[in-house]
């Protein structure tokens, strides 16, 4: 896992389906590993492979004309289970950015904690991205975290996206939450001293 994200220009893989839950991203039966590695081979397992483990030709990851580090998906991406394995699977497969018009909360945190950037765009801009990829499967998408901009390179159409300032700093510099929390140790102990009960 690369612990930094700044700027990316890449072709993109479109999955224009809404409410993609984390059970689709990585089914539960593949959650038995006790390390973070190797989940990419089971990314979208049941959409990608049939019951005999043969690739399904109609699924986009099996279509060689689509590739890249950007996944573009319908609204409410990452809903359902809190399994961080979904973020690990996307990262292990090689995705650095997920573009959607809406993300589920827990997935968004999990993605950011794994230096995958969830880029939330308007429905209109999402449609434009899908159309650009449909017109040219190699269409390049540019994501500029410093300036919080996503751009369809060929047409120059762009939109700004939100990210909280703290997480942006973490991604740009490769900081993680535990380093920050560990630095608060004295404050944590002081807080504990103020509470009579454990609630």
């Amino acid at each position: 896992m690369s612990k930094i994200f700044q700027h990316l220009v890449s072709s993109a893989v479109p999955v224009p389906i809404e409410n993609i839950d984390t059970d689709q991203i990585i089914p539960a039966r593949f959650l038995k590993a006790t390390t973070r590695d190797g989940f990419g081979e089971n990314l979208f397992r049941d959409w990608r492979f049939d019951a005999n483990n043969q690739p399904k030709a109609d699924f986009v990851l099996n279509n060689p004309i689509y590739s890249g580090k950007v996944l573009v998906a319908g609204k409410n991406f990452g809903c359902g289970s809190s399994r961080e394995h979904a973020a690990w699977a996307l990262a292990d497969y090689g995705f650095k950015v997920v573009v959607s018009s809406f993300f589920a909360d827990i997935f968004k945190n999990n993605a950011l904690n794994n230096f995958i950037l969830p880029v939330q765009v308007s429905e209109t801009f999402l449609d434009k991205v899908f159309q650009a990829i449909e017109a040219d499967p190699e269409a390049k998408i540019e994501v500029d975290l410093e300036n919080q901009l996503i751009r369809i390179v060929a047409s120059g159409e762009q939109e700004s996206f939100d990210i909280n300032a703290y997480k942006k700093t973490c991604l740009l510099n490769g900081y993680d939450d535990i380093d920050y929390l560990l630095s608060l140790r004295q404050d944590i102990e002081k807080y504990e001293g103020t509470r009579a009960f454990n609630f």
């Binding site: 827990i106 945190n109 920050y180």
Partner: peptide
Amino acid sequence: GIGTSEVEQVLATQCILQY
């Protein structure tokens, strides 16, 4: 509910970072 990186935060510090 939280992800595994957040489980690690809580194990390490009994705290979690949340908006």
